[in-house]
Design a binder for these strands. Structure first.
Lengths: 331, 331
DNA sequence: AAGAGCAATGTAAACGTTTACTTTTTAGGG
DNA sequence: CCCTAAAAAGTAAACGTTTACATTGCTCTT
């Protein structure tokens, strides 16, 4: 591993000149530049990112942090791809971690990110007033929240209109004739959970249908909880005729639960999911879902973050993307 | 961001002592240690990983690199989880990148990893004699290949018995009565592609069935190519009655292609996939697949790598895990 | 022909650690 | 009570960069 010193020696110049060839080429004479570049090539020189990051102050360290709940959830995987593509195009590397919706794990990784001197961090906060995130943001590291947001905070964010998405889904269910509609969603201490529940309630209200508390179940995003909760709903004395499952993996779980009871979708129970899945078309039946533009969310967040690095004092930005109901065959 | 210097000042000791409290606590007197720890807590001190990595030599830098083709493929996502869990348990961070099966992108990220001074790298090489990987390995950075392997190399590896997996799948297809079996797989310049094709051929040979070259198609792992290639096979004058699709996403594509032709699985065409999917049970029909222990592959690779860091000169290790045919309803 | 001004380059400090080496303190043996 | 050895703490160099500041050598102006 050759260093600046080696290159400088080979090219017969000082290390400062070599460094300038890399960072400020306009400040060094053309023929010196040529000599230096030749030496670099011959030695196979690669700047050491660690040393560079140690010296460099904010915004130029070419490293972004991304903390997501679970990379195995296709929704977050898609966000990750969006972030990574923008990063790659701008010569940034991404450090990716899974929090598992676990505050302790998130906190550990936030510390790692700070200790790694990342330029900025993209993440969906674990809950509404995620203290660890607020603290790190106050310490001066630029943050962009995606998917979920922090209540009363001025942090940059990219979100999706969850209320609208849920409203559209439930309204569609009502339009095709359902009045007993179950909801499986996440805790209301998470902005997405709250907004999707709100959309559900508003759609019912708009059609003069009373909310049945027993039809609302709270899960943890995972497939297994979709199975359990859907099963609970179907076991009710007067079960819902349609299910709105506000997350992709839980929707898959719901399919399994419904099949296990020998019921047919959509004949016996209608189903709409959220988040979408790349293979929703191959499911049995192809699943109608509210599709979030996850890749775009990731891209937008990374672009926002990069923009903020270039301009730390600009007012905070807030992007809201629109989800879209994709009609397939499950209702 | 407080540093060693701040803590040292606060505790009234030298920075060396503070550093020792962190790295070699046994070398500092108990009561000094107490004072130092108190100062650390009060200042909210976190060691700077960047500075530490700059100084530290191999194996102690607490950073692993992971380069995978595509995080959106559930198989690789599962590997990533395995790696990450082991890393987290050992206080290592993971830097994750997507190569998109693109040699240039892989090469870029390998450079980044070297420049980031990672302790070691885990990756499935893009092909059999991936020069960029060989070069980086020769430069002394520990590498563990997963899933695919490098031909005639002594690099540590964790692989799955792909030949056996393919053999089992095709043998099963034959057992239930099929003799015209199509194969959709990847290029033979990739070890997995080669081995799975070999297993396919051996299973046919073991049952005295001749190989029909026209029944073999080469894809690129993606869902879209599964659609196209399955469609090509089904359009043949004498189409296969069963398809063995040697990858998860292409299998999903094949389902779509079959449905689009109005055919029924398994009545008209039987189907077996590879790699498995978390929601294979919710597919139409639930898809019989050769399940690879991807999470275990990831874990094993990370453990191997960590072990090598502790013992750089141990002979190279080679783990081969066994896949398992999961019978569902697609044949 | 001398001085001003500028472009090109060099020198050295700084970033926050770790650690070899040195110095100081403490304990124990005679 | 002195000497030695071990334990504890300190000093300073090193890791590979970036950059403020200093120096050198030109080109212009007048």
């Amino acid at each position: 591993m050759s260093s600046l010193t080696d290159v400088a020696k080979a090219a017969g110049v000082s290390i400062a000149t070599v460094s300038r060839v890399i960072s400020h080429p306009d400040k060094v004479a053309p023929h010196t530049q040529l000599a230096v570049r030749k030496a670099m090539k011959e030695l196979g020189y690669q700047p050491n990112r660690v040393a560079r990051r140690l010296r460099q102050r904010g915004g130029k360290r070419h490293l972004l942090g991304l903390i997501i709940p679970d990379i195995q959830n296709p929704f977050f995987a898609e966000i990750a791809r969006g972030v990574e593509d923008v990063a790659y195009a701008n010569q940034f590397a991404v450090m990716l971690c899974n929090s598992d919706e676990n505050l302790e794990k998130e906190s550990f990784y936030l510390d790692v990110m700070r200790a790694e001197s990342v330029d900025g961090i993209i993440l969906p906060p674990i809950n509404d007033r995620d203290l660890a995130v607020t603290k790190i943001a106050e310490s001066g590291i630029p943050i962009v929240t995606v998917d979920r947001s922090l209540s009363n905070s001025t942090i940059d964010k990219v979100e999706v209109d969850n209320r609208q998405g849920a409203f559209d889904a439930v309204a569609h269910l009502i339009k095709v004739g359902h009045r007993r509609i179950g909801l499986i969603t996440s805790r209301v201490t998470i902005s997405t959970g709250r907004d999707r529940k709100l959309g559900y309630e508003q759609a019912l209200a708009a059609n003069d249908i009373a909310v049945t508390p027993d039809y609302i179940r709270i899960g943890d995003y995972k497939q297994a909880s979709g199975v359990t909760l859907a099963d609970e709903l179907l076991a009710l004395p007067v079960p819902p005729t349609a299910l709105f499952v506000a997350n992709n993996l839980m929707a898959v779980g719901a399919i399994e639960a419904i099949h296990k009871r020998g019921l047919n979708i959509p004949r016996d129970v209608a189903l709409i999911g959220f988040d979408d899945l790349p293979w929703a078309d191959a499911l049995d039946p192809p699943l109608t879902m509210v599709r979030q533009p996850a890749y775009e969310v990731g891209r937008a967040a990374a672009e926002l973050l990069l923009k903020r690095l270039g301009n730390p004092n600009s007012p905070s930005a807030w992007l809201r993307l629109r989800p879209r109901l994709i009609l397939r065959k499950s209702c």
